[in-house]
Design a protein around this nucleic acid. Structure first.
Lengths: 205, 205, 205, 205
DNA sequence: AATGAATGAGTATTCATTCAT
DNA sequence: TATGAATGAATACTCATTCAT
């Protein structure tokens, strides 16, 4: 069980292992990564890794939970999701891009498909604990006329999240490079996707 | 080298192998799939598979190219990308959802991360050959005032494609179920993301 | 599934593996034997061994069943257990010693304790199929006054079998050497243990 | 080096380790038992165990010697082996069954095959120190006409000991259950095996 | 002296690839 | 040309032993 983020420290072996595993997984994929390189990168023996994680699957789950939790904290610490507004949307977008820029490996890892087969219930629970409050926020935004009331909240999340992931993935794969200005433009585009377009706007144009 | 799509036939062994491989890869992932099950599903011996594909990596590339090409054909056959319009956008969206619905395995496979490490230059070339014409279309749409001129074409693609992928991935992972009406709403949302919002609209609100 | 004994041949890989495994197990024990040496001794690759035996445990069971079956055949082929007599006892003893002399590895292997943890139901069934007819023979011998009626058949078997095993084990461990004459004397001693000692004999003296 | 039996005490760490090791070995076998569980059961750290026993092999030898010595003591303390008689035989049998009943783990352990590969000269010496006096006793019994003079003493021991082991092993493996009366019958049977059968008795019948 | 976390060589098993038929 | 049995290098995991505290 890794220490909470703010207690992270380099002497904590499980934390070091999780950190190393995240980087190696992000680079070579889950199945593509043997255990020894993870241990080596963490500066411990293989046996030590297995002292802290029952098996590879448990390690993947630990990495997933830790990373998802860090994303959640980064995204929501100190913000009031109960007051949806354009400013709040911008704030979340900034935090999201900040996270992706500062933790490229974490971001890449979270987007892998193949870890989904590995995830246990706790891990899925964590995943939901991030999505649910955002869904709530969207519902409120719809009720106060800010967001498109016809777009189901879960689909809005998927759309917005997918779009965000799309541009960072394209960048990671070398298809494009994104400057800060581009990020702002993309942010506005995403906003247009989910906001309420009253009357004549919308389907027509 | 598989025959072109319209020449596909069940007596063609490479084609049968590619088809089988796509299904197995989509279900179990790239690293999770041993070669013998692919051969078995294709109704050939392992040795035969290796007659047509130098190794597993070559097979992955063949599957990728074939699938991407089919997507491209499905998306662009008979449409004139030189005349961007709301109707063309709708048409493309419909074709895209049609493809995803009719070829879930193909869609799933194309979205896997881990095959990217396997892809050779030819495969990346095919990928680009789908993106470039769409990029051109977007540029034209920006010039004729239809699309947001501030949103870079490549980013627009990534955003739109990412959003699309996002909702289908969420559905595949069991986080939501999408009806036909939802697809239309999502289509409109994506359109709002990339269209041109003149004057007062857009950043403000 | 190995071929029946008389169909054994050196081109049959499972048979060669079973034979090799028996020898190595007998020499180094079950846990003490890695899989590669077995494969090497059988003249096959490790992968081949795993083609024929799902895992090490399955191999142990196969060796056990094969060896026990050979012992059973060697012991009972062509003898009529329904006619217990001193001559039949002698015949069985001779066959038993013959087996132990000709197949020291087989004998050693069958007496290992630690394989009992590995045995599945089929294997235990084979074991019983050897003991039951001998038990029946003893019962008949008791009924016709030949054998001690107070000695339970199962205990008589255990005693006789244990005594037999005892001397061969002692020899295998280097505590003694047994000549043919000694074997005859031992045979008579065992006979005395289980035969019927009428009247004054027996408890007294 | 453990304290002599009568000095055994629970504060003596080597003794506690030997006791724990015996139980775990008897239950899981030699190779099947990792060292840490032994240390845990003994209530000491692994490092401590290695302070007293150079390695696992040394521990096995210590357990063997200790157990064999206890058997020897249990069997011979206070009896005069120089006066062979039916009563002495009965006494020895009773002590033997008593030991097996009271120390099932010890008995099971002594009968394991795979420890023989581990045993050093001292351990084999102890084994002999139990067998030799019994052998002497048998020789005397043969000289005074009590025991079968044709049965070599070492073979008689092996036979008798093997028979005894046979029935307890069969019980341990679940093939039979032995009551006190059965033990007496078995005792008489063993006695018949080794006693002197004068004249017409014996070979004939 | 006592501890148990740390280590890495060793073990069972899988799977991409070859090659005799 | 087609096959699939055979191979062994590579992988996940264990455990006897060490050594810093």
């Amino acid at each position: 069980m890794p220490a909470p983020q703010h207690l992270r420290n380099e002497d904590n072996k499980p934390d070091r292992i999780i950190k190393a595993a995240l980087e190696v997984f992000a680079e070579h994929g889950l199945h593509g990564t043997p255990v020894p390189p993870i241990a080596r990168k963490a500066g411990v023996g293989v046996g030590t890794l297995y002292r802290y994680f029952e098996n590879k699957e448990a390690l993947v789950n630990a990495v997933f939970r830790d990373t998802k939790q860090r994303l959640k904290d980064h995204l929501t610490d100190g913000v009031d999701l109960n007051e949806p507004s354009r400013a709040l949307f911008n704030e979340l977008w900034d935090r999201l891009t900040g996270f992706a820029r500062q933790n490229p490996a974490a971001f890449r890892f979270l987007e892998m498909q193949d870890h989904h087969a590995y995830l246990d219930n706790d891990s899925r629970q964590i995943e939901r604990s991030l999505l649910v409050p955002i869904g709530m926020m969207i519902l409120q935004g719809q009720q106060n006329g800010l967001l498109n009331p016809q777009l189901r909240a879960d689909i809005a999340i998927a759309l917005f999240w997918g779009g965000f992931v799309g541009i960072f993935k394209a960048e990671a794969q070398g298809y494009l490079t994104i400057g800060d200005a581009d990020l702002l433009t993309a942010r506005d585009a995403c906003w247009q996707a989910i906001r309420h377009h009253p009357k004549s706007e919308g389907i027509t144009q």
